[in-house]
């Protein structure tokens, strides 16, 4: 499983999902599992400390909305979160490029 702060970590994946649209916790979990062909099946309770940390540092904001008769807490990417996502994505591309280069035997 991807760790939170490492290149390609869970926070990058969450921020990427939120860059597409506002989501609530359960929705993020199912999106992650679906898009990764069930590779990213995190223990769902552990998502919330991560979300709350992102909220505390200002990368996401949260609001409640009632849909289908249920009140849900939606998360939205902030400008700061967008910048963080860009940094994380660049770091990941550098990292995965380096890994690929090693695997393919291409000199750097």
């Amino acid at each position: 499983m991807a760790r939170e702060q490492e290149p390609g970590g869970m926070d990058m994946l969450i921020l990427h999902l939120l860059a597409e649209r506002d989501m609530y916790g359960y929705e993020m979990v199912t999106e992650l599992a679906g898009r990764s062909n069930e590779v990213f099946q995190l223990k769902e309770g552990t998502l919330y400390p991560l979300l709350h940390r992102l909220e505390k540092e200002g990368s996401v904001s949260a609001y409640e909305e009632k849909k289908e008769g249920r009140v849900r807490r939606y998360y939205r990417l902030t400008r700061k979160g967008g910048e963080k996502l860009r940094e994380r994505t660049e770091a990941w591309e550098t990292y995965s490029g380096a890994v690929n280069a090693v695997l393919c035997g291409t000199p750097g």
Binding site: K43, G45, T46, P49
Partner: peptide, 12 residues
């Protein structure tokens, strides 16, 4: 599927 509540408690 929610995971270890002790771990979640510590992180929260």
């Amino acid at each position: 599927v929610m995971g270890d509540p002790v771990e979640v408690r510590r992180d929260l």
